[in-house]
Design a protein around this nucleic acid. Sequence first.
DNA 1: TCTAAACGTTGACCTTGGTTAAGATCGACA
DNA 2: TGTCGATCTTAACCAAGGTCAACGTTTAGA
Lengths: 200, 200
Amino acid sequence: MDKGTQTAGLEALHKFLRQWVQIDDAAWEGFRECLVRKTYKKKDLFVAEGRVCKEIAFIVAGSFRYYKIIDGIEVTTFFSFENNWTSSYTSFLNKTPSFVSVEAMEDAELLVLHYDDLQGLYKKFAAVGLFGRLMAEYLVTCLDERMHSLLLKTPEQRYLKTLTDNSIYFERVPQHYIASYLGVAPESLSRIRKRVMQRH
Amino acid sequence: MDKGTQTAGLEALHKFLRQWVQIDDAAWEGFRECLVRKTYKKKDLFVAEGRVCKEIAFIVAGSFRYYKIIDGIEVTTFFSFENNWTSSYTSFLNKTPSFVSVEAMEDAELLVLHYDDLQGLYKKFAAVGLFGRLMAEYLVTCLDERMHSLLLKTPEQRYLKTLTDNSIYFERVPQHYIASYLGVAPESLSRIRKRVMQRH
DNA sequence: TCTAAACGTTGACCTTGGTTAAGATCGACA
DNA sequence: TGTCGATCTTAACCAAGGTCAACGTTTAGA
């Protein structure tokens, strides 16, 4: 990984931050000093189920899959891609064992931030504290929508919504992972797709 | 509502805040100046589906039910009780039309805070900003657990979990509301209960 | 390049929960 | 106190999705 690519990763994060808060040079410098660059090969774990997740990371490149093992089989619950954050966030927040594992779906490159460092940044820079609140509020919005979708919509409705809102999933994620993300068996997603196709 | 009860309501909120952050007299005074006391009769709406929710409220007494109308029938998605907050939080955060209605299940008394006032407090008092982040992070934790429960557990498992973790629901909420909170028809919850009983 | 594993699809059958309808009980309120 | 509405339960039937198994295709790695 050459120096140019490293800078590109940092720039992507800097841009991400600036889209949410006004962050001055001192705060950005503070942020940068805490970041650790790490690379992951496909299938490597960023978080293992049952362990406390002490880090949060900005994905420079690649993608991750969240899953839990139920009766011996993996059930995928979420995906995240480059230019976004990844973590077992509730484990990270509460220092509790993670419900899920987080695994690289593709080779990936991360900018990793340790819990203690983030808390330090929260205290030192008001803009980072504000960023933390806005991120948490944004996550609340996403989770609330997902919860309502699972509670109120049919699998077919969820499939169609994902097709329009998250079409990237269908380009980068095996279909049987998407199936469990939608809350159905892989065979059922196959049938749903067939049903939708036949109605054009 | 006499003065003594009013003070009791404020004290409950003050205590709530102090359990989460160190809040000095100035910040608490600022908080108190923004609060508006309101009373709701059973069945009154605090938020109407489709309207932007501009307020958040601390429940001094009573309880609220969140519901959405699907194909003409009300589907209940959440409950909140005294000594907690209520709002259509994602509508409040994003100034978007609320997905749900929020209705008093019992006569209730609220301490209401307007969006603009809360933003002002966030800016003026660091402790309130911190409180906002911690509340959002706590909500993330709750919603994440609910999401995983809906995605990974059976209705019976959700019923049993609610029975132990939120037994207050079974004391204060009609069973058919709990059914839709669990994601099943009222008749199904009846069957689940019977099934569980027969296994002792 | 070859081979085994992973992946997606299909069919037969099964299970769970939804739907509809009826009836019993309880409670608020005129 | 009587009545209507709300609530809960039960039963019969139905439909959607789960399970199991087989098969063809694609992909990744030796």
